[in-house]
Protein backbone atom coordinates (compact mmCIF):
# COMPACT_ATOMS: atom_id res chain seq x y z
CA UNK A 1 0.00 0.00 0.00
CA UNK A 2 2.87 2.29 0.78
CA UNK A 3 3.98 2.34 -2.80
CA UNK A 4 0.57 3.24 -4.12
CA UNK A 5 -0.44 6.60 -5.40
CA UNK A 6 -2.90 8.32 -3.18
CA UNK A 7 -5.78 7.81 -5.58
CA UNK A 8 -5.37 4.08 -5.82
CA UNK A 9 -4.94 3.81 -2.10
CA UNK A 10 -8.13 5.69 -1.47
CA UNK A 11 -10.13 3.38 -3.67
CA UNK A 12 -9.75 0.20 -1.65
CA UNK A 13 -10.43 2.06 1.55
CA UNK A 14 -13.57 3.59 0.16
CA UNK A 15 -14.42 0.30 -1.45
CA UNK A 16 -14.21 -1.47 1.83
CA UNK A 17 -16.01 1.15 3.88
CA UNK A 18 -18.83 2.03 1.58
CA UNK A 19 -20.37 -1.39 0.99
CA UNK A 20 -20.45 -2.10 4.69
CA UNK A 21 -22.15 1.22 5.27
CA UNK A 22 -24.45 0.53 2.40
CA UNK A 23 -25.26 -2.90 3.62
CA UNK A 24 -27.32 -1.35 6.36
CA UNK A 25 -29.60 0.20 3.77
CA UNK A 26 -30.11 -3.22 2.26
CA UNK A 27 -28.43 -4.23 -0.90
CA UNK A 28 -30.76 -5.12 -3.73
CA UNK A 29 -28.34 -7.95 -4.53
CA UNK A 30 -29.09 -9.60 -1.22
CA UNK A 31 -32.85 -9.20 -1.48
CA UNK A 32 -33.45 -12.82 -2.18
CA UNK A 33 -37.07 -12.34 -1.34
CA UNK A 34 -37.41 -10.44 -4.57
CA UNK A 35 -38.49 -12.93 -7.27
CA UNK A 36 -36.54 -10.91 -9.82
CA UNK A 37 -33.26 -11.82 -8.13
CA UNK A 38 -33.80 -15.47 -8.92
CA UNK A 39 -35.55 -14.78 -12.20
CA UNK A 40 -32.53 -12.99 -13.58
CA UNK A 41 -30.41 -16.03 -12.78
CA UNK A 42 -32.82 -18.34 -14.57
CA UNK A 43 -32.93 -16.06 -17.58
CA UNK A 44 -29.17 -15.63 -17.32
CA UNK A 45 -28.68 -19.37 -17.45
CA UNK A 46 -30.77 -19.62 -20.56
CA UNK A 47 -28.99 -16.71 -22.21
CA UNK A 48 -25.62 -18.19 -21.29
CA UNK A 49 -26.62 -21.52 -22.78
CA UNK A 50 -27.82 -19.92 -26.00
CA UNK A 51 -24.69 -17.80 -26.19
CA UNK A 52 -22.55 -20.86 -25.61
CA UNK A 53 -24.31 -22.80 -28.34
CA UNK A 54 -24.17 -19.89 -30.76
CA UNK A 55 -20.48 -19.35 -30.10
CA UNK A 56 -19.38 -22.94 -30.12
CA UNK A 57 -21.49 -24.07 -33.06
CA UNK A 58 -21.58 -21.02 -35.25
CA UNK A 59 -19.26 -18.14 -34.41
CA UNK A 60 -16.02 -19.64 -33.16
CA UNK A 61 -15.64 -22.21 -35.95
CA UNK A 62 -15.64 -19.32 -38.41
CA UNK A 63 -12.70 -17.73 -36.66
CA UNK A 64 -11.00 -21.07 -36.35
CA UNK A 65 -11.48 -21.75 -40.05
CA UNK A 66 -9.98 -18.42 -41.03
CA UNK A 67 -7.05 -18.87 -38.69
CA UNK A 68 -6.51 -22.37 -39.99
CA UNK A 69 -6.67 -21.17 -43.58
CA UNK A 70 -4.10 -18.54 -42.76
CA UNK A 71 -1.85 -21.04 -41.08
CA UNK A 72 -2.24 -23.33 -44.07
CA UNK A 73 -1.43 -20.59 -46.54
CA UNK A 74 1.59 -19.55 -44.50
CA UNK A 75 2.67 -23.15 -44.43
CA UNK A 76 2.19 -23.38 -48.17
CA UNK A 77 4.21 -20.24 -48.73
CA UNK A 78 6.91 -21.57 -46.51
CA UNK A 79 6.88 -24.83 -48.39
CA UNK A 80 7.17 -22.93 -51.64
CA UNK A 81 10.04 -20.94 -50.23
CA UNK A 82 11.65 -24.15 -49.09
CA UNK A 83 11.18 -25.69 -52.51
CA UNK A 84 12.66 -22.61 -54.17
CA UNK A 85 15.59 -22.67 -51.80
CA UNK A 86 16.14 -26.36 -52.44
CA UNK A 87 15.94 -25.77 -56.19
CA UNK A 88 18.43 -22.95 -55.94
CA UNK A 89 20.72 -25.12 -53.88
CA UNK A 90 20.40 -27.92 -56.38
CA UNK A 91 21.17 -25.57 -59.25
CA UNK A 92 24.15 -24.26 -57.34
CA UNK A 93 25.40 -27.76 -56.71
CA UNK A 94 24.85 -28.66 -60.34
CA UNK A 95 26.83 -25.67 -61.46
CA UNK A 96 29.64 -26.45 -59.10
CA UNK A 97 29.67 -30.01 -60.36
CA UNK A 98 29.71 -28.87 -63.98
CA UNK A 99 32.57 -26.51 -63.28
CA UNK A 100 34.47 -29.25 -61.56
CA UNK A 101 33.86 -31.62 -64.44
CA UNK A 102 34.94 -29.10 -67.05
CA UNK A 103 38.03 -28.32 -65.11
CA UNK A 104 39.02 -31.92 -64.78
CA UNK A 105 38.34 -32.51 -68.47
CA UNK A 106 40.53 -29.61 -69.41
CA UNK A 107 43.19 -30.89 -67.08
CA UNK A 108 43.01 -34.29 -68.70
CA UNK A 109 43.23 -32.79 -72.19
CA UNK A 110 46.22 -30.73 -71.20
CA UNK A 111 48.05 -33.60 -69.65
CA UNK A 112 47.26 -35.82 -72.64
CA UNK A 113 48.66 -33.21 -75.01
CA UNK A 114 51.74 -32.83 -72.90
CA UNK A 115 52.23 -36.58 -72.78
CA UNK A 116 51.83 -36.85 -76.52
CA UNK A 117 54.30 -34.08 -77.14
CA UNK A 118 56.73 -35.67 -74.76
CA UNK A 119 56.39 -39.02 -76.47
CA UNK A 120 56.91 -37.48 -79.89
CA UNK A 121 59.96 -35.63 -78.74
CA UNK A 122 61.33 -38.77 -77.20
CA UNK A 123 60.73 -40.74 -80.40
CA UNK A 124 62.42 -38.09 -82.48
CA UNK A 125 65.36 -37.99 -80.14
CA UNK A 126 65.61 -41.74 -80.36
CA UNK A 127 65.55 -41.67 -84.15
CA UNK A 128 68.17 -38.96 -84.27
CA UNK A 129 70.45 -40.80 -81.93
CA UNK A 130 70.01 -43.98 -83.97
CA UNK A 131 70.91 -42.15 -87.09
CA UNK A 132 73.90 -40.61 -85.43
CA UNK A 133 74.95 -43.93 -84.09
CA UNK A 134 74.67 -45.44 -87.50
CA UNK A 135 76.84 -42.76 -88.99
CA UNK A 136 79.23 -43.12 -86.15
CA UNK A 137 79.47 -46.83 -86.73
CA UNK A 138 79.93 -46.20 -90.42
CA UNK A 139 82.65 -43.74 -89.74
CA UNK A 140 84.29 -46.09 -87.31
CA UNK A 141 84.14 -48.84 -89.86
CA UNK A 142 85.75 -46.56 -92.45
CA UNK A 143 88.40 -45.61 -89.94
CA UNK A 144 89.05 -49.23 -89.11
CA UNK A 145 89.17 -50.07 -92.75
CA UNK A 146 91.57 -47.24 -93.41
CA UNK A 147 93.67 -48.26 -90.48
CA UNK A 148 93.68 -51.88 -91.57
CA UNK A 149 94.67 -50.77 -95.02
CA UNK A 150 97.35 -48.61 -93.52
CA UNK A 151 98.46 -51.47 -91.30
CA UNK A 152 98.68 -53.81 -94.28
CA UNK A 153 100.69 -51.23 -96.12
CA UNK A 154 102.87 -50.79 -93.02
CA UNK A 155 103.88 -54.46 -93.08
CA UNK A 156 104.86 -54.17 -96.71
CA UNK A 157 106.78 -50.97 -96.03
CA UNK A 158 108.49 -52.50 -92.98
CA UNK A 159 109.43 -55.63 -94.90
CA UNK A 160 110.81 -53.62 -97.81
CA UNK A 161 112.66 -51.29 -95.48
CA UNK A 162 114.12 -54.15 -93.48
CA UNK A 163 115.20 -55.91 -96.68
CA UNK A 164 116.86 -52.79 -97.95
CA UNK A 165 118.56 -51.98 -94.66
CA UNK A 166 119.80 -55.52 -94.12
CA UNK A 167 121.05 -55.72 -97.66
CA UNK A 168 122.87 -52.44 -97.25
CA UNK A 169 124.33 -53.35 -93.94
CA UNK A 170 125.27 -56.88 -94.55
CA UNK A 171 125.60 -56.84 -98.25
CA UNK A 172 123.76 -60.03 -98.46
CA UNK A 173 120.36 -60.34 -99.48
CA UNK A 174 118.30 -62.19 -96.79
CA UNK A 175 115.57 -64.50 -97.72
CA UNK A 176 112.39 -62.88 -98.09
CA UNK A 177 110.82 -65.44 -95.91
CA UNK A 178 112.85 -64.79 -92.75
CA UNK A 179 112.40 -61.03 -92.98
CA UNK A 180 108.73 -61.37 -93.30
CA UNK A 181 108.67 -63.61 -90.19
CA UNK A 182 110.81 -61.16 -88.19
CA UNK A 183 108.57 -58.26 -89.13
CA UNK A 184 105.57 -60.32 -88.10
CA UNK A 185 107.17 -61.04 -84.68
CA UNK A 186 108.05 -57.38 -84.14
CA UNK A 187 104.62 -56.27 -85.11
CA UNK A 188 103.09 -58.86 -82.82
CA UNK A 189 105.26 -57.61 -79.98
CA UNK A 190 103.90 -54.12 -80.49
CA UNK A 191 100.38 -55.44 -80.48
CA UNK A 192 99.82 -54.92 -84.13
CA UNK A 193 99.11 -57.52 -86.62
Amino acid sequence: MRRFPALLASIPVAGLLLPSAALAQGMPQLAFGNPLTIAQVVWGGMIFLVLYLALSRWALPQVGAVLQARAASIADDLDAAHAAKAAADAAMAEMTEATRLARSEAQAAISAAVDKAKAEAAAEALATSRRLEARLAEAEAQIAQARNAAMAALRQVATDTTLAMVTKLTGTRPGKKSIDGAVGVALAARGQT
Binding site: A71, I74, A75, L78, D79, A81, H82, K85
Partner: peptide, 9 residues
Protein backbone atom coordinates in the same frame (compact mmCIF):
# COMPACT_ATOMS: atom_id res chain seq x y z
CA UNK B 1 6.65 -15.77 -35.09
CA UNK B 2 6.22 -19.19 -36.57
CA UNK B 3 5.11 -17.64 -39.79
CA UNK B 4 8.30 -15.73 -40.29
CA UNK B 5 11.00 -18.29 -39.85
CA UNK B 6 11.80 -19.97 -43.10
CA UNK B 7 14.16 -22.60 -41.81
CA UNK B 8 12.72 -25.49 -39.88
CA UNK B 9 9.16 -24.74 -40.69
Amino acid sequence: DPGRSIPGR
